[in-house]
């Protein structure tokens, strides 16, 4: 049975658009536009997850990245001075480009060099319940540790951005 050309087309289209918008994040001059292109990249990556039939992770990605982290980035950009909103590069730009290119070359070579043991897997549908069970069978401890980490991150973020008077308020 010929495979689903629809899915294949989808993969290449979404992949291409994701890469283009990622490049635009680097290229565009205005920081706010960069953030918006980043959001497009995130949703593109969520599309790729769906093509790889990881529905739950795709939805989590859209909810967390495109919904929350992008708003976080926008608030951060708004709070910092408008002078720095030009998406300028540091002097380290050229070496960074070379480094990234080299790394890409190495990884591509590795990809084509090793022979992946491809599983001839037919129907591969992950249901949220199967994923949930997978979460709790071997990975209960990391799950709890992740929640502790999130709480620590939240408390840390709040304390870091407190004003002096708020701190004074609490101290008094």
């Amino acid at each position: 049975m010929i495979t689903d050309t629809g899915i294949v087309i989808a993969f290449y289209v979404i992949g291409a658009s994701t890469v283009v918008s990622a490049l635009m994040v680097a290229a565009v001059r205005n920081l706010i536009h960069a953030v918006l292109f980043l959001v497009i990249t995130f949703t593109g990556v969520a599309g790729i997850y769906i093509v790889l039939s990881a529905d739950f992770v795709a939805m989590a990605q859209v909810l967390i990245y495109a919904g929350a982290i992008s708003v976080l980035l926008v608030f951060a950009v708004m709070l910092t001075p408008t002078g720095d909103r030009r998406n300028a590069e540091t002097s380290f730009q050229a070496p960074a480009l070379v480094l990234a290119g080299l790394l890409l070359a190495v990884v591509v070579f590795v990809i084509y060099d090793t022979d992946w043991r491809i599983a001839s897997r037919g129907q591969f549908t992950t249901t949220a319940s199967s994923l949930g069970r997978a979460f709790f069978s071997p990975y209960v401890v990391p799950f709890e540790v992740a929640s502790v980490l999130l709480v620590a991150a939240m408390v840390g973020a709040i304390i870091l951005t407190q004003d002096e008077d708020e701190e004074a308020g609490h101290a008094a």
């Binding site: 708003v71 926008v74 549908t125």
Partner: peptide, 22 residues
């Protein structure tokens, strides 16, 4: 008939905040 129907709804409605900002 998405297996993650409600999560999909939540994800989509969280995009609204960004649209308002833009």
């Amino acid at each position: 008939r998405l297996d993650v129907g409600i999560l999909f709804i939540l994800a989509m409605s969280s995009l609204g905040a960004l649209a308002v900002f833009t």
